[in-house]
């Protein structure tokens, strides 16, 4: 399954803004319908024929139940949202309940995370991890041009050494054989 569509994927088209306002949660319903469809479509491809079957319940039975559950819940959620129900956003120590979503920060964080995933196999964790930490703290608003990168390198080197000490392998990249 690909739990891909982030909320922005289902954001309102400009001309529909008025009707959609405050109903972004319908995007969650769309997401649930998509997952339900994926599960049901996949269940239909499974071979439940007698030859394959071991026991009276085939491989498709539970997926069908899950798909139906998702579709029913999605429908109930549509009804709830249209009647004015909203899910309360989660709170926390550092969450400002009145703030608007800061998409720039989220996208920059995701980018830093993907850069790490892209280069970790070739550049090694010490380089890619440092890029991840520095990039993420930059995205979150830290602008110490000396302290940030030093801390990033210190953390990635330290975590590399700690994990090797505990017997967990991480790629060293160019430092292979040196460390």
């Amino acid at each position: 399954m690909t739990p891909a569509p982030a909320p922005e994927a289902t954001r309102p088209a400009p001309e529909a803004t008025r009707w959609w306002t405050g109903r972004a949660e319908l995007g969650v319903c769309v997401f649930l319908y998509v997952v339900a469809a994926l599960v049901l479509a996949d269940a239909a491809t499974l071979d439940s024929g007698l030859t394959q079957q071991r026991g009276p319940v085939g491989p498709a039975a539970v997926p069908v139940l899950v798909g139906v559950l998702l579709a029913v819940v999605a429908t109930l959620l549509v009804v709830d949202v249209l009647r004015g129900g909203t899910g309360a956003a989660e709170d926390g120590e550092d969450v400002d309940p009145d703030a608007r979503s800061d998409w720039r920060t989220v996208i920059l964080l995701a980018a830093a995370f993907l850069v790490n995933a892209a280069v970790i196999d070739t550049a090694g964790w010490i380089v890619s991890g440092a890029l991840l930490f520095w990039g993420a703290s930059f995205a979150l608003g830290s602008r110490h041009w000396v302290r940030d990168p030093l801390l990033a390198v210190g953390l990635s080197l330290g975590s590399y050494l700690m994990f090797s000490a505990l017997g967990v392998w991480l790629p060293a990249g160019p430092f292979e054989g040196i460390l």
Binding site: G92, D96, P97, A99, S101, D102, L109, A139, L140
Partner: peptide, 9 residues
Amino acid sequence: ALWVASRLR
């Protein structure tokens, strides 16, 4: 982390 980052105090 993503959620808090989107509405950091």
